[in-house]
Design a protein around this nucleic acid. Structure first.
Lengths: 196, 196
DNA sequence: GCCGCACTAGACCGAACGGTCTAGATTCGC
DNA sequence: GCGAATCTAGACCGTTCGGTCTAGTGCGGC
């Protein structure tokens, strides 16, 4: 695993990443693969080829602060993506499908080791700031779907189904090492969401 | 955390559990809360009040073998439950809802620290026997839904949606510390599944 | 030139990790 | 009653963990 394996979903970095950005990118990638406890600081340092001093300079809060930054990064990334897609007046089901297809690509690229969104990061210390950050990210994504679907009570339900089928589908896909189950569950969910 | 906090979903143990069963039960409960890497052997021993010698006597393969046993336990438990429910000729949507409601109870009982099914255990060493065991469990549950839904291609799709919405919904619920999102996504999925 | 600051570099620390091993207790067939 | 098998008990081991700390490096303004 080197820093080159880590790609931001859209917009490959035009400027060479600084140490801080590289740490966040590597941390995100590793956490998505093995969860919070499964990743050692030394793993992250190895992936970035940076010494310990750099990490604790940029993230005095250590592992948890870095993890929170990683969550914030992916949260922003996906949120911006959702905003852009919905801005084109796309139907919610179509946006969900698009997001799912991108997740499939990530899954395949990582040989089904990485969980694209936040799934595995949920294996984190309970009641911590990290858990809160993950929760916030999910709330933001949920809200995007909800407002795009009209903001009604039914829209809320549909948004829940969208996100749940996506996260759940990713989990099933990663375990079975095949994107099939993810595609199936998400397309069916998209179908239902697009109905009025 | 004591052994008393751990409850099998149905059938509270009539006979006092032996050391081996207690280890499996405690391990399952802890793994569901913090994932594979998040649980130390010492945590399990503390929860069961058993010495290390006992663990390595019953599970010479150590942590991973114990985790596999825990996965097998919950897999059988849920599988048997599904078989029983489907045996009553219940509609798949109704069975899904029932399972979800049981998950809600577990979530609430654990104050949203435990992930009822296998979600968090997915944070496990890739390519291991443990990952395989998790995958097998999910395959079995999926097959139950699939055959109950008629065994067609559409049935397969619906089964995927059922499991994905359940696992995904659990994840959302745990993070938000509220069963609301789980209920919403699962009821919507159940609705769709019951349609022909 | 040179001072100050942001950052790199990695030795070092105590604690906790998973796992091994030997000694003792208990239970069982006979 | 007794010996073997099963299980409990916990000291012990080497490794790795997250985190601290001091020394050094490079680059900016002045």
């Amino acid at each position: 695993m080197t820093i080159r394996d880590i790609e931001t979903p859209l917009a490959p970095p035009p400027t060479p990443m600084g140490s801080k950005e590289r740490l966040v990118a590597a941390a995100l990638s590793l956490f998505q693969a093995k969860g919070y406890y499964g990743v050692a600081i030394s793993d992250i340092l190895e992936a970035t080829d940076l010494p310990k001093g750099s990490l604790y300079h940029h993230f005095p809060g250590g592992k948890e602060e870095l993890a929170i930054a990683a969550v914030g990064f992916i949260a922003d990334e996906v949120d911006a993506r959702l905003a852009a897609e919905f801005g084109k007046n796309k139907r919610a089901g179509a946006v969900l499908l698009e997001l799912a297809h991108e997740c499939v690509i990530w899954l395949q690229r990582s040989d089904y080791t990485k969980t694209p969104l936040l799934g595995l990061l949920a294996a984190s210390p309970g009641e911590s700031a990290l858990t809160q950050a993950i929760c916030d990210a999910q709330k933001r994504w949920l809200a995007r779907f909800e407002t795009a679907l009209g903001g009604t009570e039914a829209a809320h339900d549909k948004a829940c189904l969208a996100l749940a089928s996506l996260e759940g589908g990713i989990s099933l896909a990663r375990m079975s090492r095949s994107s099939d189950l993810l595609i199936r569950s998400v397309t069916l969910a998209a179908l239902h969401i697009n109905q009025r």
